[in-house]
Design a protein around this nucleic acid. Structure first.
Length: 502
RNA sequence: UCCCCGAUAGCUCAAUGGUAGAGCACCCGGCUGUUAACCGGGUUGUUGUAGGUUCGAGUCCUACUCGGGGAGCCA
C-alpha cells in the first residue's frame, strides 16, 4: 500500500510522521492514555494515544478497539526505551478498517489442541511468526547453497507408480482407476537427473503414511534432496557438512531476534562448525553398549529425579501460597500460571524417568545388525556438541539402492546426520549402488520385482558412475534450529495423523 | 498395530462418591507511561458419547469417539 511503512523499517523514520497498516495485537487503556500494540506482519509497534493530544472521538475509538481489528494508524515515530521494540508511534490519526469481535486467541494461555484448531489465526501470534520466519530463511539458505554451487533444480513427480521402499508406508491414491502412491522421495528420479546434469537437487513435499504420533513425525513434510554424479560417501559428507553450516550461519545472521524470542541457546548454534563428528555404525554401537552411554543416562536419571522432586515441592508451595488469605488476584493468577507450567514440566520429566531405564536397556543390549532406534540416536547426539555423521550401517537394515562397502561387505556406504541436543536424524543419505549385478542381487534378496525398476536399472547399463546424495528434512531442521519440542510448529498447516484441519 | 495419559463455562484449569467453582475473555465503572497492566461489579454449564454400579456419579466400571505422549518406522 502506497505511503505505508513497515514496522520492521521504523528505525529509518524517527522524527517522521508515517502510517502503519496492521491489526491490533493488544491494548492497554486508561483514562488519559491508550497504548495500542499494533502488528503488521513485520513486527510489533506500540502506538500511544494521548487523550489531551487528539479529538475525543479518536480517543474513544482507540479505547474501544478490539483485538485483531484491522486499522490504519498515523503518527510520528520516536525512539523510546519503554516501548517494546524500541520505537513507538504517537498517534495523530486512526482509521478502523474492520472491527473484530470475539477474536478467539487471547493473550492468555491456550491448549495445543485449541491453538491448532485455530492455526489459521494462530499464525498471527508472535511465536508462530518467529518460527515461520526462521523456516523462510532456512529454505532460502538451502536454495542459495545449491544454486551457488552449480546444482540444477529438477522437480520430481509426486505421483509415483511404485514404492521406493516399504510399500506399506505410502498413501495410495486412485489414478484413473489404477493405484498410485504419493511420493516419499524423489531420489530414484533424481539419480537419473544426476547422470544427465551432474549436480542436481529436488525440493518438494513428501508423504509418509506411517501411523506415527510423535513429536518428530508429520504425514506431509518438505524434503530437499541433492544428488551428485561422481560423488563417493566422503564427498557427500563434506557437502552435507558445508550445507548444514551454511544454513545455521544464515539463520544466525538473519533471525537472531526470532531465536532470542524463542529462547534458543544461540551460543550452541554458533558452535555448529566444521568438522562434524564421524562415527561408523560399529563405533556408534560400541558407544551405546559402553560406559559413556550408561553414565549419561545414569546422570540423566539422577538429574531428572532431583528435578521431579524440586518441581513437586515448588508446586506444593505455590498451591499453598495461592490460597493463602490476603493474596492479590493478579498474584494468584501468576502463581496459577507458574503451577501449570511446572505441572507440565513435571509430567514431561516423569515420562522421561519411566523411559530412561528402557533406553538404558536398549542401548546396553544393542546388537550389531539392528537399526539405530530413536533413543539410540538421541544418546549418540547428546554425547556430542556438534552434528554427528553415522556411516556404514549394516546392509540388512538399509534400502536396496545403497552401495555396498568393499572393505566391510556387511555394511553399506550410507550416512545419517544426527543433530545435537537429542534432535536426532535430520539427514539420511548414501552412495548408490552403481554396479548392475550387485543391485540386482540386492533386489533379489529383498524379493523385489525388477520390472517397475527397469528404467532405474538402465542408469547402471548406460554410463554408470559412482554417485550419491542425501535428503534433509526441513521441519526437523527448523525444529532443531529453533529449539522446539515438536515438529508440528515448524510448518504453517501441519498434517498429522488425526489432524487435517484447517 | 501396540502401550501410557487426558476430555468440566468461549479459553486455561479446580472440585475426600454428597448443592459444579476460580481466573481469563465479554459488558459496566474506576485508576495508572502501560508492558500477558491493575482494582470493583455483572453474564457464562446436556461435566466428550452410550451403557453399568450406587440411595446418590464430574468422580467408580465397560465400550466407543476425539486429543496428547511414546514404541515400531522414518526426514
Amino acid at each position: 500500500m502506497k505511503g505505508v511503512v513497515f514496522i520492521r523499517d521504523l528505525h529509518q523514520h524517527v522524527g517522521q510522521t508515517v502510517t502503519l497498516a496492521g491489526w491490533l495485537y493488544n491494548s492497554r487503556v486508561s483514562s488519559k492514555v491508550a497504548f495500542l500494540v499494533v502488528r503488521d506482519g513485520t513486527g510489533l509497534c506500540q502506538c500511544v494515544v494521548d487523550k489531551a493530544g487528539v479529538s475525543p472521538e479518536l480517543f474513544e475509538t482507540a479505547a474501544r478497539l478490539t483485538q485483531e481489528s484491522s486499522l490504519l494508524v498515523t503518527g510520528s515515530i520516536r525512539a523510546d526505551e519503554r516501548a517494546p521494540g524500541g520505537y513507538e508511534l504517537q498517534v495523530s490519526g486512526l482509521e478502523v478498517v474492520h472491527r473484530t469481535s470475539d477474536y478467539p486467541i487471547t493473550p492468555k494461555p491456550h491448549g495445543i489442541d485449541f491453538l491448532f484448531k485455530h492455526r489459521h489465526l494462530w499464525l498471527r501470534s508472535r511465536r508462530p511468526t518467529a518460527i515461520m520466519r526462521v523456516r523462510h530463511t532456512v529454505i532460502d539458505a538451502i536454495r542459495r547453497f545449491f544454486n551457488d554451487r552449480g546444482f540444477m533444480l529438477v522437480d520430481t513427480p509426486i505421483f509415483a507408480p511404485s514404492a521406493g521402499e516399504g510399500a506399506q508406508t505410502l498413501f495410495e491414491v486412485d489414478y484413473f482407476g489404477e493405484p498410485m502412491y504419493l511420493a516419499q522421495t524423489g531420489q530414484l528420479y533424481l539419480e537419473s537427473a544426476a547422470l544427465a546434469y551432474g549436480k542436481v537437487y529436488c525440493f518438494g513435499p513428501t508423504f509418509r503414511a506411517e501411523k506415527s504420533k510423535t513429536r518428530r513425525h508429520l504425514t506431509e513434510f518438505w524434503m530437499v534432496e541433492p544428488e551428485i554424479a561422481w560423488a563417493r560417501l566422503e564427498d557427500l559428507l563434506e557437502v552435507a557438512e558445508d550445507f548444514i553450516v551454511s544454513i545455521v550461519q544464515r539463520v544466525l545472521r538473519d533471525n537472531r531476534a526470532d531465536l532470542e524470542f524463542l529462547g534458543r541457546d544461540i551460543a550452541a548454534l554458533e558452535r555448529i562448525q566444521k568438522p562434524f563428528y564421524r562415527l561408523t555404525y560399529s563405533q556408534a554401537a560400541e558407544i551405546l553398549r559402553g560406559p559413556q552411554a550408561r553414565e549419561l543416562l545414569e546422570k540423566d536419571l539422577a538429574e531428572k529425579t532431583a528435578r521431579a522432586a524440586e518441581l513437586k515441592a515448588s508446586i506444593e508451595r505455590k498451591e499453598k501460597e495461592r490460597v493463602a488469605p490476603g493474596v492479590k488476584k493478579h498474584v494468584q493468577e501468576r502463581l496459577a500460571a507458574e503451577i501449570l507450567d511446572e505441572r507440565e514440566e513435571l509430567a514431561d520429566v516423569e515420562e522421561q524417568l519411566t523411559n530412561i531405564p528402557k533406553h538404558m536397556e536398549l542401548a546396553a543390549n544393542f546388537e550389531w545388525g539392528k537399526d539405530l532406534g530413536g533413543s539410540d540416536e538421541t544418546i549418540i547426539s547428546r554425547l556430542h556438541d556438534r552434528p554427528v555423521f553415522v556411516t556404514h550401517y549394516p546392509r540388512g537394515c538399509k534400502a536396496f539402492y545403497m552401495k555396498r562397502d568393499h572393505e566391510d561387505p556387511r555394511t553399506v556406504r550410507n550416512f545419517d546426520c544426527l543433530a545435537p541436543d537429542g534432535y536426532g536424524e535430520i539427514i539420511g543419505g548414501s552412495q548408490r549402488e552403481d554396479d548392475l549385478d550387485a543391485l540386482l542381487e540386492r533386489m533379489a534378496e529383498e524379493n523385489m520385482v525388477t520390472k517397475p525398476y527397469e528404467w532405474y536399472l538402465d542408469l547402471r547399463r548406460y554410463g554408470s558412475v559412482p554417485h550419491g546424495g542425501f535428503g534433509l528434512g526441513i521441519e526437523r531442521t527448523v525444529a532443531w534450529i529453533c529449539g522446539l519440542k515438536h515438529i508440528r510448529e515448524t510448518i504453517a498447516f501441519p498434517r498429522l495423523m488425526g489432524r487435517v484441519y484447517p
